[in-house]
Design a protein around this nucleic acid. Structure first.
Length: 575
RNA sequence: CGGAGAGUGGCGCAGCCUGGUAGCGCGCGUGGUUUGGGACCACGAGGUCGAAGGUUCGAAUCCUUUCUCUCCGACCA
């Protein structure tokens, strides 16, 4: 492809409404264009990367006997009502009616429809297991889309569903797909972790999140350097034990005037103590506006996923202003049910808000001064907490969720009556697993890991073009002709080549090449007088003159070397 | 949904406080000079200042309403 014919419009200046580097670079490199908040057009350069990633996914899944199909985006409400998710999914779902007032949604995910589709064809244990997947656009009415294509209202996802006769087969399938996922992410060049995760509203028994390491990620996870334990912060259990509690040496609860001392920070300074001697109390409410006081230690944060599991319902932080914000505490006559974190109930002689403006209590003891209706692990782990597996120190990292796998069991097959005839006769619900990869998000994840201050540095496996040939002077016949010849040779070898033949100054071409990040670069310029071209590697810049006769061999070897390395990574990662 | 901020040629911004007919850089077009790090000269095109209403002789500027966008939080298979 000649650059002069390519629809690649780069931007010199960083767009104002892009915050994270992948977003800025995707816009500057002309990969995407925003249409509305959380809705993007994929321009030709971006689309090329998307297609490369899709090919990698297809290649790895097809190896595992997965079958690609394409489900509709427009989905009727009926199966969603049968599984209960028509209401359970909530405001995230785009709903609409047709002219006959029949209800539809734009598919946010496809468990219901795939189960409906598959059940008619999977009638016997002889048909199982089966693996079906699609690469399809999903729609979610995100409350707050952000970070470019990382969190969107419309995005492309690869979703795979597996169908099994028994639990052994399901777990074998799950493991197989996990291996395929590792291969896919390694081939994309990513550093990633597979971590224990929460099932959310999808249901089922257990799940893993695939998280690419990145500062902008919205997933927080704990990792143990010593035993390899990994889990998202939502599910990682607290492994700290309470000391023996007791009130034998207790002092009497005392009211203290604390004018305008509200935050945990201010309270700990005022009392000259540490946050772990203070009770942090937050007011939560359920959907019916029933209030709950949630109590953790001052040094901890409430984990709302854990909290949801304790009460089996969704709680949200209340904006009710009737309680004195900053002075809320569990010691009161208000009769609001209290959910307490285990560690909070272990504190002796601690400080808490007195439910009265500008007042705190000191010498507060659990059991004597306050009690909770539930005492459970409802805090998020902190950096340095002990590992639940080996008790060594955990660290907390940030990452981006790029894939998620779930064991669903009969969560969907049962309500949708997807049954098969078992070997010993009789109908049984098909057991299912589902496995997602955020395809559009992967592009951003890769850029987050592969960029510098000049632009993107694509891994060869997903680069829109593997090779860029820069013609210094597009009026120089020899330079143009050499570029053309080289391009044909590389193309014949199966590589994608971009030839910058534009009549602009050389600096312009170099800057653009760096920005769009083509991994291997050849410059046809002054060296041609001695029959050499200049070679450069985007990721490890090191310009060198190479004789024209060697250049194709040289570059092909460099590319193969990079691809082999990624392949070795995935071969070594068997689980 | 709560808090904060922003809408002025394709992009990035100034002008607004203190009302008087819209400006800069980049990009774009034409001609010319250039050709190894976003070149130079000349000429040129392009904006009902997000929208509606109001105050005023006069509104990008002041007031009201509204829409859109960004950031922090809430929410998020």
């Amino acid at each position: 492809m000649n650059y002069s014919k390519a629809y690649i419009k780069t931007l010199k200046e960083t767009p104002q409404d892009a915050e994270v580097s992948s977003h800025q670079l995707m816009i500057r490199a002309g990969m995407i264009k925003k249409v509305s908040t959380g809705v993007y057009t994929w321009l030709p350069l971006g689309l090329r990367v998307l297609e490369k990633i899709k090919s990698i996914i297809r290649e790895e899944l097809n190896k595992k006997d997965c079958n690609e199909l394409l489900l509709p985006i427009l989905l009727p409400s009926t199966p969603w009502k049968q599984t209960g998710r028509w209401t359970e999914y909530g405001q995230e779902m785009f709903k609409l009616n047709d002219r006959g007032q029949r209800e539809f949604c734009l598919g946010p995910t496809h468990e219901e429809i795939i189960t409906e589709t598959a059940k008619n064809n999977l009638r016997s244990y002889r048909d199982l297991p089966a693996f079906l997947y699609q690469i399809q656009t999903k729609f979610r009415d995100e409350a707050r889309p952000r970070f470019g294509v990382i969190r969107c209202k419309e995005f492309i996802m690869k979703d795979l569903y597996s169908f099994h006769a028994d639990s052994d087969s399901l777990h074998k399938g799950y493991k197989d797909i996990s291996q395929a996922y590792r291969n896919i992410f390694f081939k994309c060049g990513l550093n990633f972790y597979s971590v224990d995760a929460d099932n959310g509203t999808i249901g089922g028994s257990f799940s893993h999140e695939y998280v690419s390491e990145s500062e902008v990620g919205e997933t927080e996870f704990a990792i143990c350097a010593s035993c390899g334990y990994t889990a998202t912060i939502e599910v990682a259990p607290t492994a700290i034990k309470n000391e023996e509690s007791g009130t034998s040496d207790s002092k009497d609860i005392t009211e203290v005037n604390t004018p305008n001392i509200k935050s945990i920070d201010e309270v700990s300074k005022f009392f000259e103590t540490q946050p772990d001697k203070i009770l942090k109390t937050l007011l939560y409410a359920d959907e019916k506006k029933n209030n709950y006081l949630v109590v953790v230690r001052g040094c901890d944060e409430v984990n709302e996923t854990k909290l949801r599991k304790v009460l089996h319902k969704n709680l949200i932080l209340s904006s009710d202003k009737s309680l004195p914000t900053g002075f809320i505490g569990p010691v009161s006559d208000k009769n609001i049910p209290i959910i307490a974190d285990t560690l909070a109930t272990g504190l002796k002689d601690c400080i808490c808000g007195a439910m009265k403006k500008d007042t705190h209590f000191k010498h507060v003891y659990y059991g004597k001064d306050w009690e909770a209706i539930k005492v459970e692990d409802i805090r998020s782990l902190n950096d340095g907490d002990p590992c639940p597996n080996c008790n060594k120190q955990l660290s907390i990292k940030h990452g981006m969720e790029i894939g998620h796998t779930f064991v669903l069991n009969d969560r969907y097959s049962k309500p949708l009556k997807a049954n098969y005839t078992a070997k010993e006769g009789g109908l049984k619900p098909i057991l299912m697993g589902c496995y997602g990869i955020g395809v559009t998000r992967l592009v951003a994840a890769i850029i987050e890991q592969y960029h510098d201050d000049k632009g993107i540095c694509w891994p060869a496996s997903v680069a829109p073009y593997q090779i860029e040939i820069i013609v210094i002077n597009s009026n120089n016949e020899k330079q143009i002709q050499t570029a053309k010849n080289l391009s044909e040779l590389f193309t014949k070898d199966g590589y994608d080549v971009l030839v910058d033949d534009r009549d602009v100054s050389p600096g312009f071409k170099f800057k653009d090449a760096e920005l769009i990040g083509i991994p291997y670069q050849i410059t046809c310029g002054r060296g041609l007088e001695n029959n050499t071209v200049e070679y450069n590697d985007r990721k490890h810049p090191n310009k060198q003159e190479i004789p024209l006769t060697n250049v194709t061999d040289f570059i092909c070897k460099e590319i193969e070397k990079e691809l082999d390395e990624q392949k070795r990574n995935s071969d070594n990662s068997s689980i």
